[in-house]
Simulated assay, not measured.
Amino acid sequence: MTNPLPDVKAFRLSPEVVAPLRERLPHVATQTIDAIMTEVPAYAEAFAGDLGAKIERAVRTALGAFLGLVSRPHGPDPQSPLGPALQAAYALGRGEARNGRSLDALLGAYRVGARVSWHELAAISVATGQPAAIIAHFAELVFAYIDELSAASVAGHADELASSGRARIRHLEQLTQALLAGETEHTIIAAAQRADWSPPQTLTAVLVPEHAARTVVDLLDRRTLSLSEAGPDFSVLLVPDADGSRAAMLGLLRGQTAVVGPARPWLRVKASYDRAVRTMEIPGLPTGNVVNTEDHLAALVLTADPQALADLRAKVLEPLSGDSSAEKLTETLRSWLRHQGRREEVAAELFVHPQTVRYRMTRLRELYGDRLQDPEWISALFIALSVPAA
C-alpha cells in the first residue's frame, strides 16, 4: 500500500534549501517547457503561436508559486501563493473546455512538467549538498503540488462543460420557441447562430406526450430540437430532414404516441406544428399510436373553420329537426351519400334490412323534397356529414 502524498500547504523548506532553487528557476522553467513541447504534441503548436508567451509565463508562475509556498514562514498566512496558482489552474481547465479539448493533453503536460521540474530541482539540490532525506521529501512536495493543480484544472474543465452545456440548452430552447412563434427570418437565424445549431433543409414537427419526450427524442436525429410543455400535456420535437425518409421516421416511432406533421422548410416549420396541433383536435382521432397528418388532410380541410362547419351542418339538417327519428335518419343519409345510393351497401354498413333503408330514404325525401336532387345541396350535405359532430 502506497503512502498518500503530503499536504503541500502544511510543509516548509528552509531558505537555505530554496535559495539555489529560486536562482535557477528560469533554467528549470525552460527545460520544463521544452519537454512539454516535445512529449505533448497538442501543445507544440500552442507554444509556437500567440499563446506561447502566456503558457511560458504560466509555467514560470506555477514553479515560482511552488517555491514561495514551501519556503514561507510558519504560522497563519492568508496570502498563501497556492490560492492564485489554483485559480490559474482552474482557469486553464475552463479554457481547454471552451476550446473544445479534453483534459488529456493538459494532464499529460502536468505529468511531464512534474517529472522534468523535479529532475532539474533535484539536480540543483544535489549540487548544493542537500541531504538525501531533504531531496526525497522535496519530491513528495513537488508531486503533491502537481496533484493540487491537476485537481483544480479538472474542476475548471467540468464546470465549464456544465456551464456551456446549460447555456446551449437555453439557446436551443430559445431557437425552438422562435421557430414555433413564427419569428422573422433574421431573428431565427440569429438564434440558430447563438445555439451553434446548423440549419437543415427541412424540419418536421412531432407532438408527443410530455412523459415520453425524452424516450422519443433518443430515437431521432441528434440535431432534433425539443420544447417541453409546448401545449397542454404535450411536448414538440422538430426533426431535421425527415421528408426524404418519412416512412423510416414513422417506423422508428412505431409503438409511441405521436402526431407527425408535414416536412416544411426549416424557417417555416410553424406550419408543420400548426397542422399537427389541428390534427390532434380532429373528433374521433385514434389515440395511443402514431398519427400521420398526411392521412387526415380531408378532415383537416373540413374542420378548418369549425364554426362554419357547425353552421353548415345545422342548415342542411334543419329539415330533420322536428322528426323523432332524426338521429337514425341522419346516419342513413350519411351512409347513402357515401355509397352513392346503393341500398344493399347502406344496409350492410348500418346492420339493418334493405327495406329499413328504403323506408328511411322515403321519409328523407318527404322531408327534403327536391333538394335531394340538387347537386349543390348534395355537396353541402356530403361536406356537413363527412366529419361526425364533436
Rank of each mutant, 00 (worst) to 15 (best):
M1P: 05
N3D: 15
P6S: 02
D7R: 06
V8I: 04
S14T: 14
E16S: 08
E16A: 08
V17P: 01
A19W: 01
P20N: 02
L21W: 00
L21Q: 01
E23Y: 09
L25V: 07
T30G: 09
A35V: 00
V40P: 13
E45G: 09
E45A: 12
E45Y: 07
F47E: 10
G49C: 08
D50A: 11
K54M: 11
E56N: 12
E56T: 15
A58T: 13
F66L: 10
V70I: 15
S71D: 10
S71L: 07
S71H: 08
R72L: 11
H74A: 15
H74K: 15
G75A: 08
P78G: 00
P81R: 09
A85D: 08
A85K: 09
A89M: 02
G95F: 12
R98V: 14
S102V: 07
A105Q: 04
A105Y: 07
L107I: 14
V112I: 12
R115D: 08
R115L: 10
R115M: 05
V116G: 10
V116R: 13
E120N: 02
E120V: 06
A127P: 05
A127H: 07
H137N: 14
E140C: 08
E140P: 02
A144M: 01
A144E: 00
A152W: 07
V154W: 01
A155Y: 02
G156E: 04
H157C: 11
A158E: 15
E160Q: 10
S164G: 08
R166A: 11
R168D: 06
R170A: 12
L172P: 00
E173Y: 05
L175S: 03
L175K: 00
Q177A: 14
A181S: 13
T184W: 05
T184Q: 10
T187K: 14
I189K: 10
A190L: 13
Q193N: 12
A195V: 12
D196I: 11
D196T: 13
P209R: 02
E210R: 10
R214H: 10
T215F: 08
V217Y: 12
V217E: 14
D218V: 07
L227Y: 05
L227D: 03
P232N: 10
D233H: 09
V236M: 02
V239R: 08
V239L: 11
D241I: 14
D241V: 14
S245K: 14
S245C: 15
R246V: 09
M249Q: 14
G251H: 04
R254D: 15
W266C: 03
S272A: 10
T279G: 04
T279Y: 01
T287P: 09
N289V: 15
V291S: 05
N292H: 11
E294K: 15
E294S: 12
A299G: 07
V301C: 11
L302C: 01
T303Y: 03
A304W: 05
D305T: 07
P306S: 03
A310N: 10
A314F: 09
K315W: 09
P319F: 09
A326C: 11
K328V: 08
K328R: 13
E331P: 06
L337Q: 00
H339S: 00
F351H: 02
P354T: 01
Q355R: 13
R360N: 01
R360V: 00
M361E: 02
L364N: 01
G369Y: 02
G369F: 03
Q373I: 06
E376A: 12
E376M: 11
I378E: 04
A380M: 07
L381D: 04
A384S: 09
S386H: 11
S386Q: 08
P388H: 05
